[in-house]
Amino acid sequence: MKQIFFVHGDKGGVGKTEVAKRMAAVMLQAGRTVTLVDGDNKNPGLHAAFEHSGLDVQRINVMTAAGRDALFDVIAEAAGDVLIDLPARGSDVTERLNRDGASEDGFSLELLLREIDAELRILFVIDQTRPPLAALRDELKALPATTSWIIVRNWREERDFDLFDKSKTKADLDARGAPIIDLVRLDPRVNDILENEGLNLISAQTSDTLSMLQKMRVKAAVRSWSEQMKIAGLIE
């Protein structure tokens, strides 16, 4: 079954694009057929990471009606899975994809998924602050009950996720059987090189720009994220 992945988080800077980049790297390295969509018109980090690798990362401004129509076509026509990196305020997008489909300002994603026999999986990225948790709570109420949720805790700060762990939202997710996985921090110096050189976690492994130690850290990040994807049932 085709899988549609939305990397969501609503709040800017929460780590959505980093999750999208790691997902793309692991899926491509595993030989999965996946179409990459960068929905962040202002900061197209997913596109920047893979554009020099010969991949056609589609840039779509999903905040516009025309962009959402284009997204519909990509999802419907893709030969394999589709990975979409949503921009900040992604809930404004998902709200318009949760309609009856008659309006020109959106479409029924649930109906499309039934038509093409696909499954929607939302990877919702949170950090230790309150705004992403509040957005997650609202999205759980707004999106169809058939939505499959995976929560990604971004450990960019060395402190616990107390707000999330003690919340009713986590209890709701536990009742739904939603996996909770962890994004470990990659050496910021390595991240800077990847961004400045237009590299991703695949191309960086053979690049002359990184030292052997830095390449080992890249490989460790790929291994770590592969294990988390296995926990979430995203890869075997």
Rank of each mutant, 00 (worst) to 15 (best):
S148C: 12
V37C: 10
A134D: 09
L123G: 01
G233T: 15
I180N: 07
A65T: 14
M212K: 07
H52R: 15
A232Y: 11
L133P: 04
R185P: 01
L113R: 01
R176E: 00
M63D: 13
A220H: 15
L46N: 03
L86H: 05
S203N: 08
R59H: 03
I150R: 02
D85S: 12
D192V: 13
A48C: 05
R121V: 10
K166R: 14
A88Y: 06
D105L: 10
G15H: 06
L120K: 02
R156Y: 08
G54P: 04
S167H: 05
A118R: 01
R32N: 11
A204Y: 13
L234C: 12
V82D: 00
G198C: 09
N200F: 04
F161I: 02
V93L: 06
V26H: 07
V14F: 10
A20C: 09
S103L: 13
A65H: 13
A20I: 09
N61W: 08
D69Q: 13
F72D: 00
K230G: 12
E157P: 01
T147I: 09
A204F: 13
Q3V: 15
S91A: 11
H52W: 07
I235C: 02
W225S: 03
V93Q: 03
I150H: 03
D40I: 09
A232G: 07
S167W: 10
R156E: 12
G13T: 09
G9T: 08
R89E: 05
Q128P: 05
R185C: 00
F5C: 06
N43V: 15
Q205C: 05
I181R: 06
P44L: 10
K215P: 14
E18M: 13
D117S: 15
V34W: 04
N200V: 00
P132C: 03
L143M: 14
V125K: 06
F164V: 01
F5E: 01
F72A: 02
R114H: 12
Q3L: 13
M212S: 12
F6Y: 11
V125W: 07
R156I: 00
L28R: 12
N41A: 14
D187C: 02
D162Y: 12
L201H: 15
A145C: 04
V82K: 01
R22M: 06
R96D: 05
L123F: 14
A135Y: 02
M1N: 09
A30W: 13
D10L: 08
Q205S: 07
I116W: 00
A118E: 00
D10M: 08
G101E: 00
T209I: 14
G90M: 01
L83G: 11
L199I: 02
L83W: 10
D85N: 15
L183Y: 06
N98R: 08
G177I: 05
R68Y: 11
G177P: 06
S207F: 06
L140C: 11
E158Y: 08
Q214A: 12
V62Q: 02
G39A: 07
T17H: 08
I151A: 03
H8E: 13
G198P: 14
L186F: 05
S53Q: 11
A118T: 02
L86M: 13
R130D: 09
